[in-house]
């Protein structure tokens, strides 16, 4: 089977722009002084991902392991097309859907229904089938008539439940999930776990970035361990988790 995602020596550098970098005053001074104030052509940057080479086959479920700031989210953003490689080549033959969004597309003054409509339109470019979608997310989130109220009147738990319902309605060919997907209160937790399980199982290919070994073991067979933007291990999930344990201690 041909790989659906292929990275060859991919490096992602995130430039650090201070306000002075794009300060008009500085630009004007530079232009009238013939650029003599320019100290260095090189701008400071963070190497978020460093020379990553790997390929992913259809249906693979991959765990992204590493401490905070190791490059997991940058990797998700890269394969989803939010970031573009600075160097190297990235080929994807599937749409990678990133599940890292934590906020609604519409303003807080608007209702849950309008938020759902915007989300549905964004996913499908049509309102065909919206009614079923609305019924499902209203029932699943347990919001009932609250769905007709403005988002700003929702508690944190209610917002999380709605967001969770919106994001997990549709299955995706390739899903990249960052941990910490809010699931609201405890009562909702079990229900959410069930839906998440079925949602993740049905997705074609899967990337999960998480610190939960339990979650990673449950869904993934392969593990990638990141450290300072480098891929330091690529192998079976148990080996990857063991490697990470050893690596951090």
């Amino acid at each position: 089977m041909d790989p659906i995602i292929e990275l060859k020596n991919v490096t992602l550098e995130i430039p650090l722009f201070s306000s002075s970098d794009f300060n008009l005053k500085k630009k004007i001074i530079k232009s009238v002084t013939g650029g003599s104030l320019k100290k260095d052509n090189k701008k400071p940057f963070v190497k978020a991902l460093d020379s990553i080479t790997l390929s992913v086959r259809p249906g693979e479920k991959i765990a992204l392991i590493g401490h905070n700031g190791s490059g997991k989210t940058s990797f998700i953003r890269l394969i989803s097309g939010i970031y573009h490689p600075t160097r190297g080549s990235l080929k994807t033959s599937v749409e990678v859907y990133p599940m890292i969004q934590r906020s609604f597309i519409v303003e807080e003054e608007l209702t849950g229904v309008e938020s759902a409509k915007a989300h549905y339109l964004m996913m499908n470019n049509t309102l065909k089938g919206f009614q079923n979608f609305l019924e499902d997310i209203t029932e699943f989130s347990g919001l009932g008539d609250f769905i007709f109220l403005p988002l700003k009147t929702y508690s944190e738990g209610m917002s999380s439940r709605l967001m969770f319902a919106l994001l997990t309605y549709q299955y995706h060919e390739c899903l990249a999930l960052d941990e910490g997907l809010g699931t609201g209160d405890k009562q909702f937790y079990e229900k959410a776990q069930k839906r998440l399980n079925s949602f993740l199982n049905k997705s074609g290919s899967l990337f999960i970035a998480s610190h939960s070994k339990e979650l990673l073991r449950k869904f993934c067979l392969r593990g990638l361990v990141f450290s300072s933007g480098k891929l330091i291990f690529d192998g079976e999930i148990e080996e990857a988790l063991a490697f990470y344990e050893e690596y951090i201690y």
Binding site: V106, E108, E109, A118, L121
Partner: peptide, 16 residues
Amino acid sequence: RTFWFTATSKTKARYA
């Protein structure tokens, strides 16, 4: 359709 809808929503929100 999406940006037209979210733009309408912005107006709605403004005068909610």
